[in-house]
Design a protein around this nucleic acid. Structure first.
Lengths: 360, 360
DNA sequence: CTGTTAGCGCCTTCAC
DNA sequence: GTGAAGGCGCTAACAG
């Protein structure tokens, strides 16, 4: 009458067969029980199964189920950069939606390396994820080929991928950039610098920059006070380039005013950061150069609303990050379930949060 | 001679059987090829296999391999709170180590909800992960039971779990808290508030608080200038409680000095935040209450070194987060490979980064 | 209502 | 060197 083995070394997890034996029935009934087909089970059998499962601490093997059913409820989530708060916030929405839909996200962090991205993508297909949510680096369509037509369903977040037709959800970049630019213009700023990372590859950056220029041009056309707009490319991954860019900005600031603190917005340089990482880099640089009072010299405005914006009083345009993540999963889920509509765009609006930086 | 089907609807991924047929051989040889047993394959066959794989764009199904081999190279990573920059940084180390060791991390975010944590843990075992890295909430051992003895290998990050014996890697909390306290004491501060989230459940918080008190006591014993230490519990999840705590702090600050800006450290209140989320909450509150010049009133020091610390000139104790994540995976890997040593502790040192906040 | 029979895609003896 | 057969844990027809 040996009940429990004394040595608990590697107590191989109970399988469906074990449970069947324990309950004195066949595997089928167990399977039915697991899949909630209760109506087809006599209360008596059901009770026995319940007991057996309990006794053996049985938990069905998802891998095996997946293998058999051809769907494992796994989806991939490819992230370009987790140090960007935007990404983490989106992730929260993704997690929540996955949970609600019974999906399990496999999170992969490319850490801004294209090669990593490629490897992860391939790894994900190897695990037979049912779909992928991609917040891509500026990669080519070919890297994503397996994902697009004929491949596994994909939905893009924030940025599109050249040549790849897929659902995309993200900020309404045009509206957001315009909103910010207009806010600055309305505030009386006449010298506005739009600072953005190299944007050829990344659609959202491209769109923001273009919208900025258009908004400036539109303002020009109204004949209101003259204002000059500049686009400054800041490559956060290239120290050399970054230094140069920042130096150019410094020159503009130095030229704009010799009397910090007593100038109106018309004399103050406004800097419009295309996203939080850029804004942070700018703020750190400006503080290092102009001291704690740097904001008297420069008005910073940023797309994205990181922690420190409130703390430093920087005006921002907050993205509906949680919703972006949530919607992305919903879209993907629909695709997985077989929806065949053409590629959809889901553009969510940003929210302007005015703080001291642009009101001074 | 139909080569490619015109309709690419759902081109079921090629299986090992397809490849075998395409290469005109048996599945066994394909399997051998996949597992790198090249020496046992004639160059000729090997070439044919290579070609077939190429032609079919074949990628072995990890799930099936896992099912057969009993190991799927998946590990779970349970995170208490992704909004804490600490977590993200640790994650980077984890990702890197996984990559190096051929593991695939399944990342789960409990978002500070114990119930979520439980669910994810159960989900992870369901996917038959080979091990788990846990940055737990203040949960009971029972929740983690499946993980500990007899269950799947686990290694803890940052906090221990009561009653659970497992490897743990994290900051040397005692040394870090002592380092910070001494820095404050050396700076001449006489009124020091240690602010920490409810710490009964979380070992790292408990250790930091205890070390703080001990350091204060030790200072007392030296007979140097008198200094008072207070522990303030700040529950970030409870608005009511938080308000009260902050009010208590405010009273202390108000009492300490009526002449902001002209006081030395002896008159200035020092606040030692047990981690970044606490520090942020404090900074936001203090700024709201005392305005942009709040740092003239209060000296803030924090364990953790978030983005905004440099920007606002706050002194910090930086944790070796990347290494923590990396080591955690290494430990886990060893366990997976069968290492049976007793539970190990890996305590890594923090680094004091002195900024303006504590030098004024 | 319940059990039996085939596989899902892959690896692993064990023969040829 | 190579291939056929069996089984990992589970589900999905089919019978009873």
């Amino acid at each position: 009458m040996s009940t429990a083995p004394t040595r608990q070394a590697a107590p191989r997890r109970a399988t469906i067969t074990d449970v069947a034996r324990e309950a004195g029935t066949g595997k089928t009934s167990i399977s039915r029980y697991l899949n909630g087909e209760m109506s087809v089970l006599s209360p008596e059998l059901r009770a026995r199964i319940e007991a057996a499962i309990e006794r053996l601490d049985y938990q069905p093997n998802q891998m095996a189920r997946g293998l058999k059913r051809g769907r494992n409820r796994l989806i991939g989530m490819l992230l370009a950069d987790l140090t960007n708060p935007y990404t983490v916030e989106v992730l929260q929405g993704v997690e929540a939606a996955c949970h609600a839909l019974g999906l399990m996200p496999l999170i992969c962090h490319a850490a801004n390396e294209v090669e990593m991205e490629r490897r992860y993508l391939q790894l994900l297909t190897t695990y037979r994820v049912e779909g992928v949510i991609v917040n891509a680096l500026g990669v080519r369509e070919e890297t994503l080929r397996p994902v697009g037509g004929g491949g596994i369903p994909a939905v893009l977040v924030d940025r599109s991928v050249e040549g790849l037709v897929a659902d995309i959800v993200g900020l309404d970049n045009r509206a957001a950039a315009e909103l910010g630019t207009r806010h600055l213009l309305d505030g009386g700023f006449r010298d506005i610098w739009f600072v953005v990372q190299p944007f050829e590859q990344v659609s959202s950056r491209r769109l923001r920059e273009a919208a900025f220029r258009e908004a400036m041009a539109a303002h020009e056309a109204t004949g209101a006070h003259a204002a000059r707009g500049h686009t400054l490319v800041l490559d956060l991954a290239d120290a050399q380039q970054a230094e140069q860019s920042l130096a150019a900005l410094d020159r503009a600031i130095d030229a704009s005013s010799e009397h910090p603190g007593v100038v109106g917005n018309a004399e103050r340089v406004a800097v419009f950061a295309a996203n939080a990482p850029v804004a942070l880099r700018l703020a750190l640089h400006l503080k290092a150069r102009y001291g704690a009072g740097w904001q008297a010299r420069v008005a910073l405005l940023s797309i994205d609303d990181p922690d420190w914006a409130e703390l430093t009083g920087v005006t921002t345009i907050r993205q509906p990050t949680y919703d972006i993540g949530y919607r992305a999963v919903e879209f993907l889920h629909e695709r997985i379930e077989g929806v065949e509509t053409g590629a959809r765009d889901c553009l969510l609006p940003g929210e302007l949060i005015v703080r001291a930086s642009t009101s001074g």
